[in-house]
Amino acid sequence: MMLRLELGQLLDSLPERLALARSNRLPHHDFLEMLFADEVTRRDWASEQRRAKTAHQDPQTHLTAWNGSTAVTFDRELRVELTSLRFLADAYNVLIMGPAGAGKTFLANALGNIAVRRHHTVHTERADKLFKRLRGARLDGSYEDEMCKLHRVDLLILDLSRPGDYPDVVGG
């Protein structure tokens, strides 16, 4: 029956949850609430992973992973403003500039992951690859379709660096 309800993933954690419920003498309704909360968490995580993959985002790129040992610092107020994603609601663009190795790509991808977690559509691509794809689209007549796809995205992240430009930066 759990499979028909598409709750088959609950079967993996069911023995552990049953033991916990018995040891804590949980009422039936609390036990069911715990199981359903586990399933909601699992589905949210899986959905976030799928959206990040579709957006070409590294789901591990989060601002909490920022290496604080670098000499680069961010304006705290600006960081809070960017992570609020108000610029998306206000239809503003954001351009992140700085010297090589400053963390521009990392910051852009971390903002992309925040947007993915908040259910915005995101597309990340290196600019040279995008321009090559759009040139090809002009040749095969799919340019308008490609532009429509890009226009529908809530957050478009274009990385202007090219592989090999900055060999000391992971991911270029």
Rank of each mutant, 00 (worst) to 15 (best):
R117W: 01
A110Q: 02
V153R: 00
G136L: 13
K149R: 15
S142K: 03
M97C: 14
V116S: 07
A115W: 00
F131I: 15
K132H: 12
I96R: 01
T121S: 14
L150A: 07
A127K: 03
K132I: 10
I96H: 03
R117G: 09
K104Q: 12
A102E: 04
P99L: 08
A137I: 05
E144D: 12
G136N: 14
L139W: 06
T105A: 09
C148Q: 15
L139P: 00
R135P: 05
Y143E: 15
N93C: 10
L130F: 08
D140T: 03
G101T: 06
H120F: 13
L134E: 10
F131P: 04
D140V: 06
Y92D: 15
D140W: 04
C148P: 00
V94Y: 02
R126Q: 12
F106H: 02
D90Q: 12
R118Y: 04
A100E: 11
L130A: 05
A100G: 13
N93W: 06
G103E: 05
A102K: 01
V94P: 00
P99A: 13
H123F: 12
Y143K: 03
A91N: 14
L95R: 04
R117M: 08
L150C: 07
K149T: 15
V116G: 01
T124V: 11
A91V: 10
R138Y: 13
K129D: 15
Y92S: 12
D140E: 09
F106A: 05
T124L: 10
R126W: 08
E125H: 02
T121R: 04
M147P: 00
T124M: 09
N109M: 13
H123T: 08
E146R: 06
L111D: 02
Y92C: 12
L111E: 02
G141E: 11
L139H: 09
H151R: 14
L150G: 07
